[in-house]
Every structure is written in C-alpha cells, then in structure tokens.
Amino acid sequence: MTDAISSILSQIRAHEMRSRGTLADAPLGNAIAIDGNRASGGVGGTAPAPGFQQTLSNVIDKVSQTQANASSLQTAFELGDPRADLARVMVAMQQSQVAFRATVEVRNRLVQAYQDVMNMPI
C-alpha cells in the first residue's frame, strides 16, 4: 500500500514538473494549470501554499472551464464560425476528456485510500 501511494505521489510530482515547463511555452490559453497563482520566490515572505481542499477545488474548476471551452468551440464550429476549425475543436474536446478522466481517477484513488485507512485495525 505504501509503495503504491509513493508511486502515485512521484507520478503527480513528475507530471507537475513537466506541466510547469510546458505551460510556460504553451501557445494556447486552454491548457489546464493546476495552480495559476503561485507565489514568486522572492526574498520577502512568501504566501502559504494552498491546502488540499483549495487545490482540489481549483483543479475541479479548471476541468469545468476546460469542458465549457470545448463545448463553446464545438457550438461555434457547428454554427459555422470560421475561427473554430475542426482541429482546434477536436484538441479542446480531447483535453476536456483527458482532464475529466484524470479527475475521476484521482477521485477513485482517494476513495480507495480512505477505504484502506478505515479498514486498518486499531
């Protein structure tokens, strides 16, 4: 159990490091950023890191925004808007689908971890 949790945490950290590097270079504004208001590493005091509940809420909000963006691009394409080409619509829909699947997977792992903790003998 501990190895599985360590593995998941290391995967999340690796993904976060990759996303920090790629989000800075991303040309589109529809990529999902886990925490858009990070404090800069200045000499003065830094803002405390958001808690688990705030981080989870931010991620769910970003997934919701991604789904809304994909839906609006799809509607624009269906109405014949020349700015909404098929490639952008398909990419936005795939991003939305991947973000939702990742959120569901995180939820499933959290429920499993909760159940494991609750079933531990005292």
Rank of each mutant, 00 (worst) to 15 (best):
R83W: 09
Q65G: 08
S72N: 09
P82G: 11
R38E: 15
G29P: 05
A49Y: 06
A31Q: 09
D81R: 09
D61L: 14
S6H: 03
S10K: 13
A113T: 11
M118Q: 07
D116P: 09
M93L: 07
I8Q: 13
I60Q: 13
R13A: 10
Q54V: 08
I5V: 13
P121N: 10
D35N: 07
F100I: 08
D85V: 00
I12V: 14
L23P: 05
A24N: 07
R88D: 12
A26S: 15
Q112K: 12
R13P: 01
P48Q: 03
A92K: 00
V89P: 02
G41R: 09
Y114L: 13
A26K: 12
A68V: 03
G51H: 10
T66W: 01
A24M: 11
A26E: 04
D61H: 15
L86F: 07
D3T: 14
N30F: 07
V106Q: 06
R20M: 14
M1G: 13
T2A: 05
S40W: 02
S64E: 04
A99N: 03
T2Q: 06
Q74E: 03
A26T: 06
I8R: 15
M17Y: 03
A87L: 05
V104D: 15
V111C: 10
D25K: 09
D116Y: 12
T46C: 00
S57R: 10
A31P: 01
S57L: 01
L79S: 06
D81Y: 05
L73I: 09
F52E: 00
R18P: 00
V91F: 07
P82D: 12
T22G: 05
V106N: 09
L56S: 03
S6D: 11
N69Y: 13
M1W: 00
K62E: 15
A47D: 07
A76T: 10
S19G: 01
I34Y: 04
Q95D: 13
S7C: 13
Q74R: 12
Q11E: 14
L56H: 04
R13W: 00
Q115V: 13
V117T: 04
N30R: 06
P82S: 13
N58Q: 14
R13E: 10
Q53K: 14
A87P: 00
I5R: 10
V111A: 14
E105G: 10
A33P: 00
V106Y: 04
T103E: 02
V89D: 02
A33C: 01
A70W: 02
G45H: 03
L73C: 06
A4N: 09
M120E: 13
S7G: 08
A33S: 05
L79W: 01
H15Y: 08
G42Y: 04
M118N: 02
I60R: 15
A14S: 13
P121D: 07
S72F: 09
I60K: 13
V104T: 10
K62C: 06
D3N: 15
S71K: 13
S72G: 06
P27Y: 03
V106E: 06
I5E: 14
A99E: 00
A87S: 01
A33Y: 04
Q53I: 14
Q11M: 01
M17T: 04
D61N: 12
N58D: 07
T75A: 15
D25E: 09
I8S: 11
G80N: 12
R88S: 10
G80S: 15
S96K: 10
A47I: 05
Q53S: 15
M1N: 15
